[in-house]
Design a protein around this nucleic acid. Structure first.
Length: 210
DNA sequence: ACATTAAGTGATT
DNA sequence: AATCACTTAATGT
C-alpha cells in the first residue's frame, strides 16, 4: 500500500476503492517548477495530490499569465472534472510549486468510480465545490482588491502551501505571478515591511503577521 | 576587480 | 498602478 494514500485517504474511501486506486493509478514524484499540465493539453488523467503543492495559472492570448490559486494535498484538479463531461482540453497551466507526489488516475476510471463508489462521488463533488470557491475568491481578488491586498493574499497563500513563512522568491517572480511590474511589487513590499507584516531580504521574504 | 542580478526610489503619466 | 531612468546593494566569476 502506498503510505500516503493510506494516510490521507483511508478515512474517506472504502478499502475496495483504495485497492482499485492502488492497482490503477500511476505514482509520480515531480520536482519543483515542473509544468504538469499546459493550456491546450488533452486531459487523460486526473491528479490526486499526496504531498506538495501546485500553482494554477491562467494565460491570455498575448501570453500574459496570472496565478489563479494553489492546490495542495488532498486536492484534485477541477479542470479534469469538467473535462470528463466531454473530450476537452485544459484551459489552465499547472506548475509544481514544491516537489510534489501524486497519483495519476485515468479519466475513464474516475468516471466509472463515480457510479460505483459513493465516497468517490462525494469526494469529487466536494473538491469541485472547493475549487469553485477558490476561483470566485481569485475573481474577487482581481476585481475588488487593491494590489497591496492581492500581494499580501498571495504571500499568505504561498506560505500556507509551502508550510513555511519564509518565502524564497524574487520581486520579479511575484510581479509575474500577479501580472504586474516589479517596481510596483518592490514598493508595496517595502510598505508591508514598514507595517511590520513582513521582513525583506535578498531573494526571500519572511512573513511576520500570521 | 568586474559583471550580473536583485532591489530601492523619484518623477512622470 | 505602470513605466522610465537611475541608484544602490548583494552575489557570482
Amino acid at each position: 500500500m502506498i503510505e500516503e494514500l493510506e494516510r490521507y485517504y483511508s478515512y474517506q474511501f472504502e478499502d475496495e476503492l483504495l485497492k482499485e486506486i492502488q492497482d490503477i493509478a500511476v505514482y509520480r514524484v515531480i520536482p519543483e517548477g515542473f509544468t504538469i499540465m499546459d493550456i491546450g493539453d488533452t486531459i487523460t488523467h486526473m491528479p490526486l495530490i499526496l504531498s506538495g503543492a501546485i500553482k494554477v495559472i491562467r494565460e491570455d492570448e498575448k501570453g500574459d499569465d496570472l496565478v489563479l490559486y494553489f492546490v495542495e494535498q488532498g486536492d484534485t484538479c477541477a479542470m479534469t472534472i469538467t473535462c470528463c463531461m466531454g473530450e476537452a482540453k485544459s484551459e489552465i497551466r499547472a506548475i509544481t510549486e514544491t516537489p510534489t507526489k501524486l497519483l495519476m488516475i485515468p479519466v475513464q476510471k474516475m468516471q466509472a468510480w463515480m457510479h460505483k463508489y459513493k465516497t468517490w462521488q462525494s469526494f469529487i463533488l466536494q473538491s469541485y465545490h472547493e475549487r469553485m470557491r477558490e476561483l470566485l475568491e481569485a475573481i474577487d481578488s482581481i476585481a475588488f482588491l487593491r494590489m497591496d491586498e492581492r500581494l499580501f493574499k498571495y504571500l499568505r497563500d504561498k506560505a500556507i502551501v509551502n508550510r513555511n513563512d519564509l518565502i524564497n522568491t524574487t520581486h520579479q517572480e511575484i510581479a509575474h505571478d500577479l501580472h504586474t511590474s516589479r517596481v510596483v511589487v518592490s514598493r508595496l513590499l517595502k510598505k508591508l515591511e514598514q507595517e511590520n507584516k513582513i521582513r525583506l531580504q535578498r531573494n526571500n521574504i519572511k512573513l511576520l503577521d500570521l
